[in-house]
Write a protein that binds this DNA or RNA. Structure first.
Length: 268
DNA sequence: CTGGTCACCTGGAAGC
DNA sequence: TGCTTCCAGGTGACCA
């Protein structure tokens, strides 16, 4: 999926919808991770008040409530001109006067929900951890999160209750930059290592956003542009290829049923 | 609480 | 060419 950078690229791409009026909502396939509620059909005529991101969730403020959108593993949002025929996995349209915002999600692990209440108190968002690009995320904070945790640092980073938005790609990439092996027990990280890791996470996410995210197969920005960060991976999906820094072959291991990648020469 | 496993779904690539 | 198997950017639910 879309991890934080891809969701943020999407948010920036649709931010100009604020102030514009939804003329219709079309749900062709409501069977996403949870059924798309029929109430979203009643949004026709409402004006978008704001668009924000929390972790990997996009929040669209419609005044009367919020749309909560998650792109799952294969989701993307893009603008199409009115009248464009929907393709096989184009499940939902938000129709505006000038164009149509279309949700595509082949695997249907994504979600489109509605809440009348404060979105941050929604059950899916209420227990989310710290935003990695915020000032709240610093060495002290990560060190506190890691204290007493025997779990591997990579799995801690990917647990949204600790830190949001860091998924399988960027966890491996950030650990490479920080020179820490993914299997290191979280509680064993020194304060100095936490400082390096925080810095590496912020730098990785920011450069990925600048590159338009990663496009492995499905992801496109709202303008249809592919991201290019996948060309800059140091370790992700580079099993047996030489490390860009030390030439040692990159290793692939499995943690929590997810692939992890690291350089045995650069990461200790 | 923690840590481990399974489930959801489609499609592309690799193997035979 | 076609069938089978494995793998993929996430994360909630369930178990010990």
């Amino acid at each position: 999926m879309p991890e934080l950078p891809e969701v943020e690229v999407t948010r920036r791409g649709i931010a100009h919808l604020v102030g514009r009026r939804i003329t219709a909502v079309s749900v062709r396939e409501p069977r996403l991770r949870w059924p798309v509620p029929a109430t979203v059909g009643a949004l026709a005529g409402t004006t978008v008040r704001g668009i924000s991101r929390r972790g990997k969730y996009l929040l669209i403020d419609c005044g009367s409530g919020h749309l909560i959108l998650h792109l799952g593993m294969s989701g993307s949002l893009r603008f199409v001109v009115p009248g464009t025929a929907p393709q096989k996995h184009d499940h939902v349209d938000l129709v505006f006067a000038e164009n149509v915002l279309r949700l595509r999600d082949p695997r249907r692990f994504g979600a489109l929900l509605w809440t009348d209440a404060a979105p941050e108190s929604h059950p899916l968002l209420a227990h989310l951890g710290v935003e990695p690009l915020s000032r709240d995320f610093d060495a002290r904070r990560l060190h506190a999160l890691a204290r007493g945790r025997r779990t591997a640092i990579k799995q801690l980073l990917m647990d949204g209750r600790s830190v949001v938005g860091v998924g399988n790609i960027y966890a491996s990439e950030a650990l490479f930059l920080a020179r820490i092996r993914p299997r290191t027990a979280a509680y064993r990280l020194s304060f100095e290592q936490c400082a390096r890791l925080v810095d590496a996470i912020k730098r990785t996410l920011r450069s990925a956003i600048r590159a338009g995210g990663s496009s492995l197969r499905d992801f496109v920005g709202s303008d249809g542009e592919l991201g290019s960060f996948q060309t800059r991976y140091h370790v992700y999906d580079r099993t047996e290829l030489p490390c860009r820094r030390c030439r040692a072959p990159i290793r692939r291991i499995v943690q929590g049923q997810r692939a992890s990648f690291y350089c045995p020469g650069c990461q200790k």
